[in-house]
């Protein structure tokens, strides 16, 4: 039995050897082609995994988009509900804004008024009334802080 097995092994080994020699003779690049095939199969596997991951990502984004859409709809509903109140606020605030702008203008214009009045007093009133100023009355003016 052992001898039969040995003969069989010898036969297979010889056959493999002959097959290898035949391959080298007929397809000299066989080993390289096999290597390329294995690499291509690996890359295909990686690509497949990437596509699977991309599909998952798209599915996640779609879910997120649906969630955002729901939140947007809810916000729009809230805004529509608040619109009358918002309009009320605008109607109430607009005249006040105009009043504020008028007040601001008036406050700014006071700068000019002060300058004009100071100028009128120093250039017209005081020179014209200089002769009427009583020195004794000036001396009697109430003392002021220093």
């Amino acid at each position: 039995m052992a001898a039969v097995d040995q003969v069989k092994r010898f036969g297979r080994g010889a056959a493999r050897l002959m097959a290898r020699r035949a391959r080298r003779l007929l397809v000299p690049d066989y080993d390289e082609l096999v290597s390329d095939r294995d690499r291509a199969l690996h890359e295909l596997q990686v690509a497949f995994e990437s596509v699977t991951a991309a599909h998952q990502g798209i599915a996640d984004l779609q879910a997120e988009q649906r969630a955002l859409q729901e939140r947007l709809n809810a916000t729009l509903l809230l805004a529509e509900a608040a619109e009358p109140r918002l309009n009320e606020v605008v109607v109430r605030v607009e005249p006040r804004l105009e009043q504020l702008e008028d007040g601001l203008h008036e406050a700014r214009r006071l700068n000019l008024r002060i300058a004009e009045l100071t100028d009128i007093v120093t250039e017209i009133v005081l020179p014209l009334h200089h002769r009427d100023i009583d020195a004794e009355r000036v001396a009697d003016l109430a003392p002021d802080t220093q």
């Binding site: 702008e101 601001l104 203008h105 406050a107 700014r108 214009r109 700068n111 000019l112």
Partner: peptide
């Protein structure tokens, strides 16, 4: 312009 109009007329 509002500032100049207010201050300087």
């Amino acid at each position: 312009s509002n500032r100049f109009w207010g201050w300087l007329s």
